[in-house]
Amino acid sequence: MNSSRVASPLRTIVAHELRTLRREGTFSTLLGIFSAVTLFAVFIGWSTRSTTLAIYAATVATLKAAGVSHIAPNPLLGVSTLAIFNNLIIYTLLVGALLAIVIGHRSFVRDRKSGVVPLLLSRPAGRPLYIAGKLCGINVALLLVILGMFVVSALSTLFIPALHLSGGEFLSLAAFYAVSFVYLTFFAAIGLLFGVYMSNESLALLAPVLVWIAVVFILPELSTGQNPVSLLNPVTLAHAPAASGAFFSSARAILSPFSFGQDYTALALHFLRISPGPFDIGAILALAAAGVVAGAACVFALQKYSTTADQIA
C-alpha cells in the first residue's frame, strides 16, 4: 500500500471498516447468504410461474374438452415477469434488516471490546467523522451486497429464457434494489446507534431487534389488522383491504409516519409491478429520512458517550 500523502480521515475509517468486515469473514458470509436467498427466490418464482403456465395449458385443454368455446386469456399475461422476485421483498424486509443490524452493532462493539475507542476518540478526526466513516463503510458493504443480489438476479433472467425482462423492467428491478438498500441503511444505523448508546452488549443487540419487530410487525398489524403471518405474503399485502373500524383508522393516522416497513413494502411492490398503485414519493422520502435521522442519532449518542463510564460500568 503506497501512502505518500495524508489520507483523509473519513476515507481511512471507511477503508478500515471494509477491511475488517472482509477479514472477519462477515462480508463473504453476507454476500453468500444474500446471493443464496436471491437464487432461492428466483427458483421459487420461476418454478411457480412455469407450473402456473403449464396449469393454464392444462386448463385450456380441460375446458375445450368440456366444450367451452370462450376461454379467458392467460391471466398471468397481466402479471409482470418481475413478480417472480416477489419473495425477495419479504426476505429483505425481515432478514436483510436483521443482518444490517448485526453489521451496525458489531461495528462499534468490536472497537469497544478491543479497547480502541478511547484511542480513536483521542485522534484529531473527531467524533462525528468517526461515526460518518463507520456508517459510510457499513453502507458501502451493504451496497456491494445489494449489487451482488442485483447481478445474481440479472444473470438468472439472462440465462432462463422464460424470465426475459424488457429494458423498462430491468430499470424497475434496479429501482427495487436501490430502495432495498435505502431500507437497510436505516437498520444498520440503528444497530450502530444502540451499540454506541448502550454499554450492555446484550441489550445493545436486543434493542434494535425490538425496533425491527416494531417496524415490520407491530406497526403494520396495528394499522391493517392483519395477523403477523399474513404480513409475510407480498401478494396478500398488495391486495389486502384496509381494516375497518375507528381503532384501525386512527391507528393508521398516528402510526403512518413511522411505518417505514410498510413504506418499503409499498415501494418494492410498486417496482416489482405487483401492486397497481402509483409511485409513492412520500414513502421514499420517509425511508431516506429514517436512515438519516438514525445516522444523526449515532453522532449524538457518541457525543454523549463517555469512555470512563464504560470503564466504570
Binding site: 500500500m1 503506497n2 501512502s3 505518500s4 500523502r5 495524508v6 489520507a7 480521515p9 481511512t12 475509517i13 478500515h16 477491511r19 475488517t20 477479514r23 472477519e24 468490536r110 471490546k113 478491543s114 479497547g115 480502541v116 478511547p118 484511542l119 480513536l120 485522534r123 484529531p124 478526526a125
Partner: peptide
Amino acid sequence: PENVTFYNDLTAYENLAYFARLSGVEEVD
C-alpha cells in the same frame, strides 16, 4: 489506553497504518 487489544484480524501494519492516518501522518509506510 490500558488493556488495548487492537484489531485481531488485521496485521500489525494494517493496525498501525489505520491509526497513523487518523493521526494525520504523511508517508505512512
